[in-house]
Amino acid sequence: MYQDVILDHYKHPHGRGLRDGDAEVHHVNPTCGDEITLRVRLDGATIEDVSYEGQGCSISQASASVLNELLVGKELGDAQKIQETFLALMQSKGQVEPDDEMEEVLEDAVAFAGVSKYPARVKCALLSWMAWKDATAKALSEEAKTA
């Protein structure tokens, strides 16, 4: 479960810290107390920044770091595809062996495949991704309101 890639992201997180954003959400995992505050800044359909601050286990923290690395600079449509692929992998109960196509989409995030075997830890891995989805929806609806 604890792949080197995950431990690397845990010890040296990418993009950690809160910066300006269009929307902010705070998500918690009530069963274990993992928390994340996450902000999204959009430039049209491009994700300009995802910044975050949180506390939690290595899985939840590394996952947020991977998310930042993967999604910043992406178009929203591509980001959504990555998010959906990651969600499917995490919900696979260890039954999905990531293939080349999946690895191309998920890059470092394929390292979390092993986590999907541990039901108690899947939520840790998904915490930041759910927060990102929520924050993005919020940013888009704010934008729609002001447009």
Partner: peptide, 21 residues
Amino acid sequence: IHPHDVGQVLDEQGIAVRVGH
């Protein structure tokens, strides 16, 4: 070290503890 990580690595050694609040 987050308790979840402590508990998981202990579990890998066959040691069952509880983690959380």
